[in-house]
Structures are given as structure tokens and as C-alpha cells.
Design a protein around this nucleic acid. Sequence first.
DNA 1: AGCACGCCGACT
DNA 2: GTCGGCGTGCTC
Length: 716
Amino acid sequence: MEQPIAEVAVPRPLERTFDYRIPEHLSGLLPGVRVRVPFGRDQVVGYVLQRKAHSAFGGKLQPLIDCLDDAPLLSPAALALAHWMVQYYVCPLGLVLQAMLPQRLHPSRPSRNKQVVVARPLPQTLGAIEQLRGVAPQQARLLKTLLGYDNLTVRELLDLTGCSYGPLRGLLLKGWVELQSKPLCGVENRFHERPKALTLNGAQQAAVDAITAAIGRGEGTFLLHGVNGSGKTEVYLNAVRMALETDKMALVLVPEISLTPQLLSRFRSRFGQRLAVLHSALTEAGRAREWSRLCQGEARVVLGVRSASLVPLERLGLIVIDEEHEPSYKQASPEPRYHARTVALQRGKLEGAVVLLGSATPSLETFWRCETGQIQRLSLPERVVSAPAPRVRLVDMNAVHGWLSPVLERALADTLQAKKQAMLLLNRRGYGVAFCKPCQHTQRCPRCGIVLVFHLKQAQLRCHYCNYVSPHTSCERCGAAFELIGAGTQRVETKLKRLFPSTCVERMDSDTVRRGAHAALLERFRSGQIELLLGTQMIGVGHDFPGVGLMGIVDADTLLSVPDFRAAERSFQLLAQAAGRAGRGEQRAEVIVQTHHPQHYIVQHALRNDYEAFAKEELAFRKAHRYPPYATLIRVSLRHKNEDSALQQALKLQAALADVACDVVGPSKGLPFRWRGRCRWELLLKTEDPKLVKPALLERVKQLGLDKSATLNVDP
DNA sequence: AGCACGCCGACT
DNA sequence: GTCGGCGTGCTC
């Protein structure tokens, strides 16, 4: 064997790669395959980077154990992307490769038969819905939902409608629906919404034409700027089709699949078996099945969440990022930390793929790229569904006692009376904040210094940052009974249920929603079962709920006061999306924003829906303070069991960075300050020359022996 | 990251 | 006399 040695990256936070002897029976081993190798005392799955004739390693080489793949999973392009990520995000190659590839492959699981619910022929069913409306509303809703989808399992149907089995049994007994046993090869047949024929309007067609031309050239980056309901999805579908027609693959990223069942079903009905779906709720076997469909060339389109941005694909022609401004595209932990939008833009360059970003309220990074000519903007000005723009009202809370203004209360009553739905956005969970009137003391988390929030159900004070629970049930300083001030979702819920006793009020925040239940709750709201939905930003202000007559922002100030340089951007996005929501038919929707700062530029720009004015003003701020997109931020956390040691390490590193061309801000206490028994001190580096600063930083960290305690976080 | 080796305090 | 703390160093 001419090159009997394989260089392997292992999935450990290590810079170095390791050489292994290739045993005789694996002499055909190719770079890009996964191999099982001995590593220390255990075995790990590593990734073959290249073959070589000699190793620089002094010791005795171990042989690799076996090979997991017949063909390489990592193309040269995928390896190039991985190497770029290693440099850009300053993280180990093995961890990047681990994130790009599945942990398993070869599912070859026989498709099992599953019970699916089937509605009787359409005309009869439509009649039945009419018949049932009023007498059995739950049964009517079940039937209505069934009409929208193909191949729903019983579980899925009940989840979607929020019904129990009772109403379904009623329908079965009446013979309106029946259960059939069908082979469901997992995900690919599910949520198969019936296709509707659609023609493109002028702006949509112009966008598709521009993208098509770019796909032909093999380069181009676009922003599809259009409000909700302006038909972005139809442009995506057509752009993907054009990519397929030129024999290329397409990658479509969404913030969270479970929250966009309509988008998923439209892609399914358009691309059928050519679509692979990758999201975080998939089992390892399900993921392997989608992967093998991709490897075998059956699937040509990938619809997925953040992690799908890393999937290696041959002949990638188009990457779509829907709602590109969404923070869920950023992976904070575990390593590799990355931003799917940044990765996608780089992939576009490396692989000759067109990148299409879609949003109603683009991120400032994207807006800036448009301004500087790196991205071409395609606007979709009109709503496809014609509905009047909502009426927006601002309530100055300085003149109001309590958290609920008479204006909002009145509007809620009127909306519910008119049998329309209402949404309330409130960004604070829990009940309220513990304030002691006698000694003017507000209880704070001893670890994080953050104000503690009272939770009614457990009757305890909790830190929303680190989950610390306070042992105190009265003022920790003077022992007096504290007063609960401010409004959290629990308090607002209590009050609303008292004000509107006959209304179905639901609260949606991370305290009430267990993982994966978002979609079901939102579907119940969409179907009208819930009349008043109260929640934190997870209620998905951007989604289209046509039955909503009133959208209330209970406290715009809590959005603005978040200590993060992106807080203003996030606030604008939430307010603008709320103000941009459509009504139904001729009905005008209403938006009410309560704030103590009605003249704040974010509030003013959002309510006028003046994205450009907001973006320009905010960019000036970012430039003045050296924030992205003008500078790169690198946050360095130093963790140590001993608080003072962590601080000393931070100071030592700061001193060592004195000659590096960057601003070093801090050290400051990290949040949460204590995590797994370790304290965190942080440095914030601001630089216009990240290519120079990153290697220098890494070198100093190693020099000072801080590898174990330091974590680097490159933004974005 | 794991996991070993290795050198100093409280216990059968 | 041992058990066990976590500080340094290695994994081809």
C-alpha cells in the first residue's frame, strides 16, 4: 500500500488531528469517510481527512478499526466549508465535522403500517361539517382539519386539533371518517396538504426570473423583502423548482419546522418524494432515513432547521433562508457555535450556489449588505391576500395606573364581543417582581444579580437566567411581606380570566408549553378554539392568524430594556410584525402598543412600518459603537471554580492582548455567572480585522494555558 | 472532552 | 497506614 496512513479528525475539542494505520482489508479507504478508531481508552467515530505515506507522529500508530461508509460523505466542498468554519468560528475541526454528518446511517428499516384517519368523499363531508357546526363543534373541527391534509395519523390529528379521542370516536361511529392501515415510510407522506394552483403576480415573477438567471450563472445573493402574506413561499417554491430543472439541489432553511406546518405541507405537495426533511425532533433513525434518501439521490430538496445548513450536498444550486432575521439560526451551544445565515452565505461562495434570504424585517447585517451592494434586494410590496392594513394605537402608560390601560381593556372587550380573536404579547414570564415597600428592596438573584420573578404555582421566587430558587417567602432584608409589582404572564392571565370569564384564555410561555407542544397550541388558536392567546414572543407574532382582530403589546419597554446590542433590532421586528399583521376580509385588525416611551425611535418607526428609517438609524448606532456589521465581536468566557481565579485569568488574558489590534472590553461578569459550579468572567473583543485577531487570540490563550477554561464565541 | 497519573488531608 | 480530592498531561 502506497499510502498506508490515514489522517483522522476526532469529535473532541482538540485542534490536532491523529494518524492511524490503514489495515490491509481497508486498503481502498477514501478521504471523507467515517471510521471507527481507538482513541485513548475508548473508540470514537472519526473523519478521514487524507491519506499519506508517512506520519510525523513519533510513537506507534494504532490501526483504525473499521469504515462506516461505502462512499465518502464529505465532498471536497464540504471539507472546504468545514475548514472555513474552523477558522471563522475558532473551533475544532472534529466537532464541525460531527455537526455536518449524521451519527448513524443505513436505516434500511422496513416501512411499518400505521393507522391513518381518512375522511369520507368530499361533498358528503362538507355537508357533514355544516350539519355538525353548533351541535358538535369539536367533530366539525376534526373534519375540517382532515380536509386540509392527507395521511394524518390519529395522534397527529388529535394534536393538531387539540381534541381528545371522544369526538373522533363520534365521527367513526357516524361513519363520516374511517381508519385505514397504510404504509407510512415515516415523515415523507405526512402533513401532505392538498396542492392549490397558484399564479405569480408581477413582483413574484420578477423575483423568480432574477433568481433563475442567477442559478444559471451559479452566483448571486438576494434578499426577498416582503411582508407576511406577500407570497414569499411561492417564490421559494418556484426558485427551488428552477434549481431542480437545472439539475441542481436546493436547501431550504426555516427557523423551526413544527411552527410552520403550512410551509412544510406546501413543499411536500410540490416536491413529494424529492423532499427530505431534517429537524431536531427527528429520531436518529428518522434522520438516517432522510440522509440515505439524500445519498441515494432520491431526495433533491432539503427542508430543514439551522443544523441542515451544514449538510453536505452535491451540486448545490440554491439556498433559501426563510425569516432570515430569526435568532434561532444562531447556535450558541454546544460547539460548533455558528450562524446558519453566515454559513449559507459562505456556502454560496464556495459551492457556486445562489442564496435567497427572505424576511419582512431583515436583520441589520442583511440590510447593510444590500446597502453596500453585496446583496440584491427583491421587493414584494403587495399582499396577495387583500386585507386592509391594521389600525395602530399607542398608549402612553405614564398616564395609566397598573399594567392594563382602559384603551386596551375596552378593545379586548369589543374584540371578544364581536367573536374575533385577540393576542397579547408580554415578554415576562411568571407573576411579578418581589418588592418590599418598607425598605424599598427588590429581591435579586445572588448569583446573577438579576431581578427574581415570583411564580404563583410553586409560590416561589425564581431567577429566569440560572433557575435559582430563593428560599425566602418574605423580604430577605427586613422580613416584611413583599408586594408583587409589575406584570408577568401569570398575573395577566389571572386578571384576564377574571375580566372575561366566559372566554377561552390560554397562556403560552416556556412554563406552560412543554417541548414540541407549540404547534398544537397554535393550531388550536388558528382553529378558533382559543379566543384569547397570551404569551411571550414564542406566540410567533410573525405567523399569519387570519381570525385575529386585536394584537396587544402589553409592555413594549421590557423588549427595549434587554441588555443586548441587538435588543433594539429584535424589538423593532416584533413591533413591526405585530403592526404589519393582516385582518380578515373587510375587517380591519387593530394593534395596541402600551409603552412608557411613546416617542422612542424604535416604537415610532415600527408603528409607521418604516423599516428603512429604523435600519438607517440603528446602523448609525452600530457604527458609532463598533458593533456588527461594522465590527466583529468575540466574547471570551473564562470559567473557574474559584471566582477570583476566573477573574485573574481574564485579567491575564486582557494584558496579553494589549498588542493585538482590537478593543478589549471588560472583564465583566458573565451571565449566568455560575454554571455547573463554575464562575464566569468575560472579555469582549471588538475588531475590524477578525482574520488577524482570531489567530492571535487563540495563540495567547494557548500560551497562557487557558485552553481548558476559555471558550470563544464569535458573533455572528 | 474523557481519563489516567500524581501528590497532599481526614478516616476505617 | 488507606480513600479521595482535583491539578497537569495525553490521546495517533
